[in-house]
Write a protein that binds this DNA or RNA. Structure first.
Length: 571
DNA sequence: ACACTAATTTG
DNA sequence: AGATTAGCCTA
């Protein structure tokens, strides 16, 4: 259960509008019946009129309605990874399942069946951890999503009701009026010319805890962007990609999403997400995934503190790129084994061409977005030879096939259980080593505390910081200092390495270096850029770069950094 | 600088 | 319910 909120602690934070607590708790004001985020820019309520709640659902259960100004539905979520016992894990899984499943499926019996425990137990555990029952949580979430859609989009009210997960317009109207003391149309009176231009898309807003280093996030994504599926424009600060959504109890949906990140120095940063109309029925599922993809729930201040001044300073606001589709990420992690980022992208491109699903023209996808990543069923039909023909060694093709076949049963795939168990299960798979497992958890689960073992770049950067050679065990020990946010240290160290490399290659390109120095530079460059993983079989081979991978390294990646965007890149 | 919105307080 | 306050938008 959440620790009770201490007004002595919360009230000053409220007066200070401390963003660190945004989404961590809400303040409800007795005299008005409204609850707000701590950052709300309204006249501060008197202390004796305040009540503090750890979640929006609890505030609503106490009959408060959300503020129309600070919009609690946009708030970043509170994250809890540490101190998880079995009860916490079960409650977390329950929330994720409720978030992701289709409305018809969202019943207590179905939830209990999914979790493999009795209904009574689900209810007890859920209430103990979240303070409200599963259905009340769901109700709150639906109402808040409806509120957002009414405010941000021109979507017809009947569509809003369905997209938010209500069974009928009538029940939606009744529920909305009941809880919020407002008619749905009351949120609609603002002018909607903005969306009139593109009636078959909706644009949503997502809030976060500033700062956001959007450029760094885009640079990570652009290096891995697969043509036809993803299009990143670092200058315009946009990401465009196709989306496949699979939900328990419903058919897959295809569509696309365009993300617009705010400039890095924006004070009140807000991300915008434009969605194709095809995705409306699954907005509830998509929103949390978008948040995890871009790591909008991160708490930069806490991360920077854990990383220390030297590393945490430059990393303040750095995000851990996650994924919308954990299956896609898993496959691409295997494709990326033992090869450079650029080579992995080439392989992924071939995979898309061969197995991807062409987007129907009716989706109205912007130019350049042509395919969706194949679902597990589709790849399950492939043979080892099919996969190997993409340019993978037979061994790795086999590893990929095994992963696909085991996918439906993996705890990792379902986001079930604890990190250590998920890693253990993944490492059991042939051809999948600890580096890949860590990487998969780091991005697929948004696990903040990964530190991929035996990573060459990480070892070098850690040695440089320690100013001496380190054994692998010493690297791991030194990384303990960054817990529980080692993933962010990883990102920052990778980033430093990439920046050092581009600085060196820029210097050598300008021809100011002496000959022997240039040679040295090139060698270092290659070492830094070969971001590979040991193909850790169970036998455990030492990592080494193949000459082929090494030669490919410098060239394509440098080109990728300054690649002009194709014409017609929508923005 | 100004009109406007939404919340909070006051009576 | 009316008055006040803070912040936002538009001019």
């Amino acid at each position: 259960m959440d620790t009770p909120l201490d007004p002595d602690h919360c009230y000053p934070a409220l007066l200070a509008r401390d963003a660190r607590f945004d989404g961590v708790w809400f303040v409800a004001v007795r005299t008005t019946g409204v609850y707000c985020r701590p950052i709300c820019r309204v006249r501060p309520p008197k202390r004796e009129n305040c009540r503090f709640f750890p979640t929006a659902a609890l505030a609503e259960a106490a009959h408060f309605r959300p503020c129309l100004k600070c919009r609690p539905e946009l708030a970043p979520l509170a994250r809890r990874w540490s101190a998880m016992d079995a009860t916490d894990v079960l409650a977390r899984e329950a929330v994720r399942w409720l978030d992701e499943c289709s409305p018809e499926m969202a019943t207590l019996p179905a939830l209990a069946a999914h979790l493999g425990v009795s209904e009574r137990h689900v209810r007890r555990v859920f209430t103990a951890v979240h303070g409200v029952g599963p259905l009340q949580y769901l109700q709150t979430r639906r109402l808040l999503l409806a509120k957002q859609l009414l405010t941000d989009t021109a979507m017809p009210v009947s569509e809003v009701a369905l997209a938010s997960g209500f069974g009928s317009l009538r029940r939606f109207n009744a529920s909305f009026a009941d809880h919020y003391r407002l008619k749905p149309s009351a949120l609609r009176r603002t002018s909607q010319e903005a969306t009139a231009a593109a009636p078959d898309t909706v644009e949503l807003r997502l809030d976060l805890r500033p700062p956001l280093l959007g450029r760094a996030l885009l640079q990570f994504l652009v290096a891995r962007a697969v043509p036809g599926v993803e299009q990143v424009d670092v200058e315009a600060m946009t990401v465009l990609r196709s989306v496949r959504l699979s939900r328990p109890g419903a058919e897959d949906l295809l569509g696309w999403v365009q993300i617009h990140l705010p400039p890095d120095d924006t004070e009140r940063a807000q991300v915008r997400a434009r969605l194709s109309a095809s995705l409306w029925p699954a907005i509830a599922t998509l929103m949390p995934r978008l948040r995890r993809w871009l790591d909008l729930d991160a708490d930069p201040a806490a991360i920077a503190a854990a990383l220390g001044d030297e590393l945490g300073g430059p990393a303040t606001g750095l995000r851990l790129p996650g994924t919308i589709d954990r299956f896609e990420l898993a496959i691409r992690a295997v494709l990326g084994q033992q090869v450079t980022v650029a080579a992995a992208r080439t392989l992924a491109t071939r995979l898309i061409t061969r197995f991807g699903e062409r987007l129907p023209p009716a989706l109205g996808a912007p130019d350049g977005i042509t395919h969706a990543f194949p679902p597990p069923e589709r790849l399950a039909a492939a043979t080892v030879d099919d996969i190997a023909s993409l340019g993978l060694p037979a061994r790795r093709a086999q590893a990929l096939i095994t992963l696909v076949q085991r996918w439906p049963t993996l705890a990792y795939a379902q986001g079930r259980g604890e990190v250590t168990a998920a890693i253990a299960e993944l490492v059991e798979l042939p051809g999948l080593g600890p580096w890949t497992a860590h990487y998969m958890l780091m991005r697929g689960w948004s696990w903040p505390d990964a530190f991929p073992p035996a990573d060459v770049v990480l070892k070098q950067r850690m040695e440089q910081r320690a100013d001496r050679a380190l054994k692998p065990s010493e690297v791991a020990a030194a990384a303990q200092a960054f817990a529980p946010y080692r993933s962010y240290a990883v990102l920052q160290l990778w980033r430093e390495a990439a920046q050092a490399t581009s600085a060196r290659s820029a210097r050598s390109a300008s021809g100011r270096d002496a000959g022997h120095k240039v040679k040295h530079t090139v060698k270092r460059t290659i070492k830094h850029m070969v971001q590979r993983t040991e193909e850790s079989t169970v036998k455990g081979k030492a990592p080494h770069a193949s000459p082929v991978a090494t030669r490919r390294t410098t060239d394509p990646k440098r080109r990728a950094r300054s690649a002009p965007r194709p014409p017609g890149a929508a923005s």
